[in-house]
Nucleic acid binder design. Structure first.
Length: 777
DNA sequence: GAGCACTGC
């Protein structure tokens, strides 16, 4: 097969640059001298019989192999999965792999894997579990001989990509062939793929179309302790699939001491045909490889944690030996502020106390990638030979706790707080709240100090507070979210009886009731709680139910093309940027796109300008000039493409009203109501305040709005709870439209008495009068 | 006249 065949693949995708070796955040994971592999993704003439008799795995007995056999096969000379001669690079990596802590327990792992269907595996940081366990499984499960795959899930995309690349290197294959990955917008797998790293959300999507996950012979859920929504649902699902598919092997990998909880959860006992079926889930633990971290507590509680944090950082700089510092704070503003203060104080220390140079870097999710990358710059050297050490301080959010790993951190300062999502089912609002972290989180933070050598962690709370006040684990996401989307997914997965669906931590009944109610109003579920045709369609879209319903209904309003754009814009980060240093100029630029009837329309105008020929000639320049986020707009483009494909597949019409038609914007405003009729607020009469229709909450229009405050009724995209109650991204609508488009929700016979009902009744009369006039003509 | 912790489809 010629080189040309390999590179001229039809499947090569160009949506995004996804070569993980190009990812600056992962550069520390790659040996610079081992870059001999391109990422050309090949779809060659493989016909399913490439693994022939001479294959060293030929005599392996499935689910009865030994570690010794696997070692032999791994030792070459040929690659047991491709029959190709193994390269030098492979053997070099093999040496380091054999040194990993998991490797010592390979036989033990296999024994356990053979003896059971579900296995709980606990491996601490540095044990090598994410890269090695899936390979241990491959050599025993031999999925290529059965036309199956092994899947390994990750909570984050970058992890799925980078680990897949690493394992492809370890196995001496091209990424996308035997080893691949699958994440939203990027599928690097092919017909030869036997090991697939993927995001947990991606596997959940697949399950919606293949409830028994028949493509897989083994599913490995990695980082299960993070308890993402997708992981929790998958675990519940896998418990059921395990009973339907005795041939499916399941490995749950976790990093915490909470392993017994997983073990207990996966011990299944079920009566089938008067026989008791019992699946035990044995537990295997492997030590990690990290350096010790000494923990320090404060003597007394700190009143002002930011002030205490700054003091601690400066004290470390003044008194501790060489090594970088990581400080955890809660959000952008707090971090930027702290960075300024640290830099100022450090300058003074350098001038007056002969301290070493100190460089300060902020780190949070919304920071542009180029600036995020700076945290990997080396610390400054001492200002004179033999002088006090220079160092860097990184002031970051929780992103530094799991998502990004920075080597060289020796000192961690942990004030013990983070912003967490909380959901209040009573007022049906999700909000962000600064809250104390959990013990597990505190341990994870401390661990960041011991990656390269022994370190120190300064906790800005007392030891007693740590022991008594911090909860063990952060509450899993499923207990902190609006579950409308989750319930829709579960229904699509065939879970009819939600109350008895076995989740590891069942949410409050009220949260479930709220979700069912919301889906019922959206006509996604009927009165029996069964999925409707609309619900079926909505579940196909990777969107919140209200957005999905809005999009599906949009052809009826002759504006599905526009709603496609708007839906995409509403599911990416804010497209308007407003740097603190140029607020006025940013506002002036936004004014160019402003539509007086609403922020949704303003967003759409900006998007259309971005898609225009002038902007497309130089998107970067256009965005910079107009204070728009190129990243957000490009991401909206990606989302739009994906949604458009689903629209086409579902045979939903793509239509527009002529731009010069006077109904162009009216149609869009009406279409908003089809999904967001539960998010309407009415002016309170007295002045600036509005009242929500849903639960009579007093709210203000968010100051970022371009809408004049004289609109009687508005539809809002979100409710933000900060110093005040705000509704954000608002567009003016009419009461008549509400009655017309959402007659069940706005049924005047059952609508609760009050100002809103009176106003709706007036609108109803107006409609009747108009009808009568038309009828009389 | 305010503020987006972090993921994911």
């Amino acid at each position: 097969m010629g080189e040309k065949d390999v590179t001229s693949s039809k499947k090569a995708k160009s949506l995004k640059t996804t070569d993980p070796s190009q990812n600056p955040y992962l550069s520390h994971m790659y040996d610079t001298d081992v870059n001999g592999y391109g990422n050309a993704y090949g779809n060659d003439n493989y016909c399913g019989n490439g693994h022939s008799e001479e294959n060293t795995l030929a005599h392996f007995k499935r689910h009865a192999t030994t570690a010794e056999q696997a070692y032999k096969a791994e030792d070459g000379p040929n690659n047991p999965f491709t029959s190709q001669p193994l390269t030098k690079k492979y053997f070099k990596i093999l040496q380091t792999r054999r040194d990993l802590p998991v490797n010592k327990q390979r036989q033990e792992f296999l024994d356990m894997f053979h003896s059971t269907q579900i296995l709980v595996f606990v491996g601490e940081t540095g044990s090598g579990k994410t890269t090695q366990i899936p390979q241990f499984v491959l050599y025993d499960d031999l999925p290529h001989l059965y036309g199956k795959l092994v899947a390994c899930t990750q909570p984050r995309r970058v992890a799925a990509m980078s680990v897949a690349q690493r394992v492809a290197d370890e196995m001496d294959v091209r990424l996308g062939e035997e080893v691949g990955y699958s994440i939203r917008f990027d599928d690097k797998t092919g017909p030869k793929t036997i090991l697939k790293y993927m995001t947990d959300g991606m596997l959940l999507r697949e399950a919606m179309h293949d409830r028994d996950l028949t493509r897989y012979s083994c599913i490995i859920l990695d980082e299960a302790h993070e308890r993402t929504l997708a992981t929790d649902i998958l675990m519940g699902l896998l418990k059921e699939v395990a009973l339907r598919r005795p041939d499916l092997k399941i490995v749950i990998m976790s990093a915490t001491l909470d392993a017994q909880k997983f073990q207990k959860y996966f011990t299944i006992e079920k009566e089938i045909e008067r026989r008791t079926l019992r699946i035990e889930a044995p537990l295997l633990a492997v030590p990690g490889r990290t350096h010790p971290v000494e923990i320090f507590y404060t003597q007394d509680p700190e009143k002002d944690y930011v002030e205490a944090a700054l003091r601690t950082v400066l004290q470390i700089h003044a008194t501790e030996p060489e090594g970088d510092i990581l400080l955890f704070l809660t959000g952008e503003e707090e971090i930027e502020d702290a960075c300024r203060k640290i830099a100022l104080e450090a300058d003074e220390m350098i001038r007056e106390a002969d301290a070493g140079p100190l460089r300060v870097y902020p780190l949070y999710g919304t920071l542009p990638p180029a600036q995020q990358q700076k945290i990997f710059d080396p610390a400054p050297p001492p200002s004179r030979p033999g002088g006090p050490p220079g160092r860097k301080v990184i002031v970051g959010t929780n992103i530094a706790e799991t998502s990004l790993t920075i080597d060289g951190i020796v000192y961690v300062v942990d004030p013990g707080f983070s912003k967490q999502k909380v959901y209040n089912p009573r007022i049906r609002v999700e909000s962000l709240l600064v809250s104390p972290i959990s013990k597990a989180s505190a341990q994870q933070r401390a661990g960041r100090a011991g990656r390269t050598r022994p370190g120190k962690c300064f906790r800005l709370y007392t030891e007693a507070a740590f022991k008594k006040e911090l909860i063990e684990q952060t509450y899993p996401e499923i207990l902190r979210s609006n579950l409308a989307n989750t319930v829709l997914e579960l229904k699509k997965l065939g879970v009819d009886d939600l109350v008895h669906f076995d989740l590891m931590d069942p949410p409050a009944p009220e949260t479930l009731m709220r979700a069912l109610e919301e889906l019922n109003y959206l006509a996604c579920l009927d009165d029996n709680g069964d999925l409707t045709r609309l619900g079926q369609l909505a579940s196909e879209f990777p969107l919140d139910p209200a957005l999905a319903v809005m999009l599906i209904s949009s052809p009826e309003f002759y504006c599905s093309n526009e709603m496609l754009s708007l839906t995409a814009l509403l599911s990416v980060p804010q497209i308007f940027v407003r740097p603190a240093s140029a607020r006025k100029r940013a506002d002036d630029m936004k004014a160019l796109f402003m539509h007086p009837d609403g922020d949704h329309l303003t967003m759409l105008n900006a998007y259309h300008a971005f898609k225009g020929p002038q902007a497309q000639a130089d998107p970067k320049g256009f965005c910079h000039q107009h204070f728009l986020s190129l990243r957000a707009l490009q991401s909206a483009d990606n989302v739009r493409m994906q949604l458009k494909r689903i629209m086409e597949k579902s045979e939903l019409e793509l239509v527009s009203t002529d731009f010069n038609d006077k109904e162009y914007y009216t149609n869009i405003r009406r279409a908003l109501i089809a999904g967001f009729f539960m998010q309407i607020a009415k002016k309170d009469g007295t002045g600036k305040t509005y009242k929500t229709v849903k639960d009579d909450q007093s709210v203000l229009l968010h100051p970022s709005t371009g809408l004049s405050t004289d609109s009687e009724w508005v539809v809002y995209n979100e409710f933000v709870l900060t110093t005040k109650n705000y509704v954000r991204t608002v567009t003016s609508v009419k009461a008549e439209w509400l009655l017309d488009i959402a007659p069940i929700y706005y049924d005047l016979d059952t609508f609760p008495k009050g100002d809103i009902k009176t106003a709706l009744q007036a609108a109803e009369k107006k409609i009747q009068r108009r009808k009568a006039m038309k009828g009389g003509r």
